[in-house]
Simulated scan of single mutants.
Amino acid sequence: MDIINITIIDRQGNTLETEAPTDMNLNLMELCKANELPVQGTCGGMCLCSTCHVYVESEHDLPEMSETEEDMLDNAFFVDDDKSRLGCQLKITPELHGLVVKLAPEAE
């Protein structure tokens, strides 16, 4: 599967149905930015900030969180232990077809 569907819910509750290529080594943060969603990705996807924090709303088997991602989420705002992930750490792969995520609130 070269194109998958991912649903992104913005901070106002608006739903965006996106198509994402699986053959370009993109991550979820890059997909959000490409669709002009308000995701900063300040560190450029290096897992050095939490400005691409999302809540995973669907029941997907995601890759294990790295220790670096866990540490970054420990310092983030509005973390949900069951749903929070960093978009830059979620590579767009065929296994993510049907994924639903919601942008986490921005830090105060």
Rank of each mutant, 00 (worst) to 15 (best):
88 C>I: 02
70 E>H: 06
77 F>Y: 14
87 G>W: 07
25 N>I: 01
63 P>M: 12
64 E>V: 01
65 M>S: 14
76 A>T: 06
6 I>L: 09
73 L>S: 09
25 N>K: 09
62 L>E: 10
91 K>H: 11
62 L>Q: 10
55 Y>W: 03
105 P>H: 08
101 V>I: 12
23 D>I: 00
28 L>F: 03
66 S>D: 12
59 E>W: 07
106 E>T: 11
49 C>I: 04
65 M>R: 10
16 L>D: 01
22 T>R: 08
34 A>H: 07
52 C>F: 05
1 M>Q: 14
24 M>R: 12
94 P>E: 12
59 E>I: 14
25 N>G: 02
77 F>A: 13
19 E>M: 06
95 E>R: 04
6 I>A: 11
33 K>Q: 09
19 E>T: 04
107 A>S: 10
51 T>C: 05
64 E>K: 09
81 D>H: 09
57 E>Q: 15
83 K>Y: 05
106 E>S: 05
36 E>P: 00
107 A>Y: 00
48 L>F: 06
95 E>Y: 02
1 M>D: 09
16 L>S: 12
63 P>Q: 12
3 I>F: 10
53 H>D: 13
33 K>I: 08
39 V>R: 02
10 D>T: 02
60 H>D: 14
2 D>Y: 03
60 H>R: 08
15 T>C: 06
19 E>L: 03
97 H>A: 07
6 I>E: 04
32 C>S: 07
84 S>P: 05
10 D>L: 00
52 C>K: 03
85 R>H: 15
27 N>T: 03
58 S>I: 14
42 T>G: 02
35 N>W: 05
8 I>A: 06
70 E>C: 07
47 C>W: 01
4 I>S: 04
90 L>M: 15
59 E>M: 14
53 H>C: 02
106 E>N: 05
30 E>Q: 12
27 N>E: 01
54 V>N: 11
43 C>A: 07
78 F>I: 01
53 H>K: 08
98 G>I: 13
41 G>W: 03
38 P>G: 12
8 I>Y: 06
3 I>K: 10
96 L>W: 10
44 G>V: 06
69 E>C: 04
107 A>W: 00
72 M>W: 00
28 L>N: 07
79 V>R: 00
35 N>V: 04
45 G>C: 10
56 V>C: 13
86 L>G: 13
108 E>I: 09
34 A>I: 08
